[in-house]
Simulated scan of single mutants.
Amino acid sequence: MNNQIAALAGTVGSTEARPTKQSQQVFDLLTKELEGYLVELRKAYKELIPPIDEILKKHGHPVIEVKPADTPQARQTSAEEDLTGQQ
């Protein structure tokens, strides 16, 4: 996916014209795919890490820290908006 985004950025950035309709379609497709991965990652943080942390604590090891990025809070993906009904 990273290579696809880089290739799209190279194509769009290689001209001073507006992105083509095809480039916009590829961007939309990659955005949806990335949003799906983000939903899975956030789900893993919420569901998988707490049980692992309990095992680590039980054996005297430090827990896994999921720190927020040094950027503004991530926006809710359209897939998450569909699930929660919130925007």
Rank of each mutant, 00 (worst) to 15 (best):
Met1Glu: 13
Asn2Gly: 10
Asn3Gln: 14
Gln4Ser: 14
Gln4Ala: 15
Ile5Phe: 15
Ala7Gln: 09
Ala7Glu: 09
Leu8Lys: 08
Ala9Phe: 13
Ala9Gln: 13
Ala9Gly: 07
Gly10Pro: 07
Thr11Pro: 03
Val12Asn: 12
Val12Arg: 07
Gly13Val: 11
Ser14Pro: 07
Thr15Glu: 02
Glu16Ala: 14
Glu16Gly: 13
Glu16Arg: 13
Ala17Cys: 05
Ala17Pro: 01
Ala17Asp: 11
Arg18Gln: 12
Thr20Phe: 11
Thr20Asn: 11
Lys21Cys: 02
Gln22Arg: 11
Gln24Lys: 13
Gln24Ala: 07
Gln24Leu: 13
Gln25Thr: 10
Val26Arg: 15
Val26Asn: 03
Phe27Tyr: 15
Leu29Pro: 03
Leu30Arg: 06
Thr31Arg: 02
Lys32Ala: 14
Glu33Leu: 06
Glu33Trp: 04
Glu35Trp: 00
Glu35Asn: 04
Gly36Cys: 11
Tyr37Phe: 13
Tyr37Lys: 13
Leu38Arg: 02
Val39Ala: 03
Val39Trp: 04
Glu40Asp: 12
Glu40Gly: 08
Arg42Asn: 14
Arg42Lys: 14
Arg42Pro: 06
Arg42Phe: 05
Lys43Gly: 08
Lys46Ala: 12
Lys46Asn: 13
Lys46Pro: 02
Glu47Cys: 07
Glu47Ser: 06
Leu48Gly: 03
Ile49Gln: 04
Ile49Phe: 09
Pro51Asp: 10
Ile52Phe: 08
Ile52Val: 12
Ile52Ala: 14
Glu54Cys: 00
Glu54Ala: 13
Ile55Thr: 06
Ile55Cys: 00
Leu56Trp: 03
Lys57Asp: 15
Lys58Gly: 08
Lys58Tyr: 09
Lys58Asp: 11
His59Ile: 09
His59Val: 03
Gly60Met: 05
Gly60Asn: 06
Gly60Glu: 05
Gly60Phe: 04
Pro62Glu: 14
Ile64Gln: 00
Ile64Ala: 03
Glu65Leu: 10
Val66Gly: 09
Val66Glu: 07
Lys67Gly: 01
Lys67Cys: 08
Pro68Arg: 01
Ala69Lys: 03
Ala69Asn: 04
Ala69Gln: 00
Ala69Trp: 00
Thr71Asp: 06
Pro72Trp: 02
Pro72Thr: 02
Pro72Met: 10
Arg75Cys: 01
Arg75Met: 00
Gln76Pro: 02
Gln76Thr: 03
Gln76Glu: 02
Ala79Met: 12
Ala79Asn: 05
Glu80Tyr: 08
Thr84Leu: 14
Thr84Phe: 11
Thr84His: 11
Thr84Lys: 13
Gln86Ala: 14
